[in-house]
Amino acid sequence: MIKIANVSKQYGDFKVLTECSTTVSKGEVIVVCGPSGSGKSTLIKCVNGLEPFQSGEIVVNGISVGDRKTNLSKLRAQVGMVFQNFELFPHMSITENLVIAQTKVLKRSKDEAMDKGMKLLDRVGLRAQAAKYPGQLSGGQQQRVAIARALAMDPICMLFDEPTSALDPEMVNEVLDVMTELAREGMTMMCVTHEMGFAKSVANRVIFMDQGRIVEDDSKDAFFANPRSERAQQFLAKILQH
């Protein structure tokens, strides 16, 4: 489904990503973790071409992301993405947020898009908020709407970029619950997150990154039982203390 091969990226002399390679199969859930500045957000933003990269290759569902001839908009329409800061469109109601890309990008009819949008709002438990604006919702609710907005495009896979990092602690779980359910339904997911509980219960594999490199790429059991690298051991020790 997603193949990342020897991807490197740099800003001037600073190497953000060095020779990153991994693959994600259909239905797999991958958690990408690592200290801040390790390049994990950059890596998943490369997957849908939001961040360009200088060398290597990323292939999503048979389409090469780095290829100039690739229609990136078309590819992105099939890859859902959820951001740390939700990025709902503040000048549109929740309903409009869910409908706009369906009608403008996928050219669905307004009725069909509304129908789909409402079903997904139901699913994330926010149907009652349909007429409100993003600013009137809590962070957790906004993030659930953002997930619904991405799902409305019927994506072939989902990318999550620290979806719970900007949330108050009591709202983290409502978002993780939605993600867990999604994973159980067989959605292919790549999640950058520090939520090790989520990783333990849902992930198939864990990727650990440090200084722009993929240091560990292992099944979750192997990763949590005995991480091979010292950096990962330190990281886990720190993050699991709390």
């Binding site: 939001l50 992105r76 099939q78 951001f83 800061n85 990008v105």
Partner: peptide
């Protein structure tokens, strides 16, 4: 905010 453009692009706009 730049994130708004990212979000719009990520939706295929």
């Amino acid at each position: 905010p730049k994130g708004q453009i990212s979000a719009a692009s990520a939706l295929g706009m």
